[in-house]
């Protein structure tokens, strides 16, 4: 015996769903949502997005190795930015002169920070405007 496909199964399923008592409220809700989405322009926006051309362009923009790597670590960057941002926007009372600088240089954290700064400077020096 060979079973050939037919559409009757999915039609049956839809009819069964329509008969459920919750359906009336669900349909009314959906209709309201559709009207609201239409008025706010959200429906038009979705229509544009569902068109593969837009999704494709968006993907092409986002899907580069550099972007993927950056996005991958975004949570870490946010942490660093947040912490250093706090330092940047807070008024600083203390003053550091040459002596203070020399003293600070003995702090291992400052030494690591300085190394990172030098690396950053070295990289910045190689960046050419395109």
């Amino acid at each position: 015996m060979v079973e050939e496909k037919s559409d009757s199964k999915s039609t049956e399923k839809i009819l069964a769903l329509l008969e459920r008592p919750e359906m009336e409220e669900a349909v009314a809700n959906l209709a309201e949502l559709l009207i609201a989405m239409n008025e706010s322009g959200l429906l038009d926006l979705l229509k544009v997005l569902a068109d593969r051309g837009v999704l494709e362009s968006l993907m092409k923009y986002l899907m580069t190795p550099d972007f993927l790597r950056m996005a991958d670590k975004l949570d870490k960057y946010v942490h660093v930015l947040e912490e250093s941002g706090e330092i940047l926007i807070t008024e600083e009372k203390a003053r550091t002169g040459i002596g203070g600088l020399l003293k600070a240089m003995r702090d291992p954290d400052v030494q690591v920070g300085l190394t990172k700064l030098i690396k950053l400077l070295k990289f910045l020096g190689t960046v050419k405007e395109q």
Partner: peptide, 23 residues
Amino acid sequence: KFEPIFDVYFNATEPNILGEKGW
């Protein structure tokens, strides 16, 4: 419909493109 979307992902993450740096 989905081919161009997957293609972009597969191309951007080809092993020789991600290379030593990885992801």
